[in-house]
Write a protein that binds this DNA or RNA. Structure first.
Lengths: 233, 233
DNA sequence: CGCCGATTTGAAATTGGTCAAACGGCGTGG
DNA sequence: CCACGCCGTTTGACCAATTTCAAATCGGCG
């Protein structure tokens, strides 16, 4: 895959207010990396030398414990930034999480030190990054609360709603919102096991709330999920 | 309590590189609020009009669900900033969490909009904020992973170690590290119930790992806790 | 057609939560 | 100065949600 155009780069939130000159400058200091499904742009613990902008495909950001079990922190879609914490500060030397592709993917890799220097003279970039980080903090804090206080059923409902909002493609004919994720993916995103997710989705399919298949979940009644997600008790 | 001195303000990480003029300017646009134990500087959902610097006391940042159950996101100690997300971006209109005092406390309240404007012409401030936010993200992500993958025993061990690192006062005579928290506080910090925490601490006390009392936990063998925290399987 | 990985399902095990009740120490008011 | 009461803590018994393990089934692709 070749370098993106300046107009494409403006789809990146952080670059919204960037001048063409700035974008050119950034492109001159970056390179495109294409990798196939299930491989990694970087691993937890790698030196955080680059920040990435996803050009195509999908990436999940995961963290593992010493036993190799893993959780997904978020899903990255095209024109979103990932691996950016290393650029925000001099302290972070390594990535705190891994980035694994869910499909064949390409990303623009920008040197962290270059980007950091650029931010010093470009307040709009620093504010863009703070904006980004604020969003991360709010989402992960909310998910932390859910994990601590809600049951699996509610968390899965919340997760599906969130995924639908981030990626959902409404099929034509009111056929519902289609999500391309395996049971295992959903399990890692909700802090549950593959088995529990499978049972739950089967149950919801029987009730007509969703319709599902291999690595695919189609939300038929989003409102029902919203109800389940907010179910007090 | 009266306004802090410039030298005291320099204990605030974000202000490390601030000039005296800048600090004076900030002080002129801020005010001191003193409140008693168990009351709130702000509530989740309030308009995020101020960011705070704790001057004395201790504050817990909590998030509640619609049932009123709550989790603690972190503990704030003097010269740390809290309620800052509203200053980092134009988007955040409200605090995503509440700030409740664990003791009588005082804090310097700085207008969010003022601080945001100041950051536009002070890169060191923006970088300080990004630094702060990076730390938040790393800690909450780690805790999220623990909550998803580890059992209560390991999480409590991790929590006590973390608290010891953040606040711990080493008693003289190698008597251990003293933490001033109730069982309920620890429960909210680990995502467990008061009862489970009580049982676990009783067990550890029998084993000589800690020594505890009312709203007090003294870590006698930190290394044992480290072992428990990292116990694979 | 056969294989491989994803999914489903059952049964048993287990962690941790819930509820009820008793305990204990500290501060306060009589 | 002491008794009382409050609030945090402890403990037991029971229960429920979810995980674990095993095995069968499905579905698409080479």
């Amino acid at each position: 895959m070749s370098q993106p155009s300046l107009n494409e780069l403006k789809k990146v939130n952080v670059f919204q207010k960037a001048s063409d000159d700035d974008l050119e400058f950034i492109l001159q200091n970056s390179l495109v990396r294409s990798i196939e499904e299930n491989s990694f742009f970087f691993l937890q613990g790698d030196e955080a030398a680059y920040l990435y902008i996803l050009l195509s495909g999908r990436v999940k950001i995961t963290q593992s414990n010493t036993n190799g079990q893993q959780v997904s922190l978020r899903i990255v879609y095209p024109w979103q930034i990932f691996g950016a914490l290393g650029a925000a500060t001099h302290k972070v030397a390594v990535y705190p999480a891994s980035s694994q592709t869910l499909e064949n993917s390409a990303a623009l890799a920008i040197e962290s030190s270059f980007f950091r220097t650029l931010m010093e003279s470009r307040p709009y970039l620093a504010f863009g990054m703070m904006n980004l980080m604020t969003g991360y903090i709010q989402e992960i804090q909310e998910r932390y609360r859910e994990l601590a206080l809600e049951r699996v059923e509610q968390r899965v409902a919340s997760t599906l709603i969130r995924l639908a909002g981030q990626s959902g493609v409404k099929s034509e004919k009111e056929a519902g919102i289609e999500l391309i994720f395996s049971r295992q993916d959903v399990a890692e995103l909700t802090g549950a096991t593959l088995y529990t997710i499978s049972r739950l989705l089967s149950d919801w399919e029987r009730k007509g709330i969703i319709q599902s298949g291999r690595e695919r979940i189609c939300i038929l009644k989003p409102h029902e999920l919203t109800l389940i997600a907010s179910n007090s008790n």
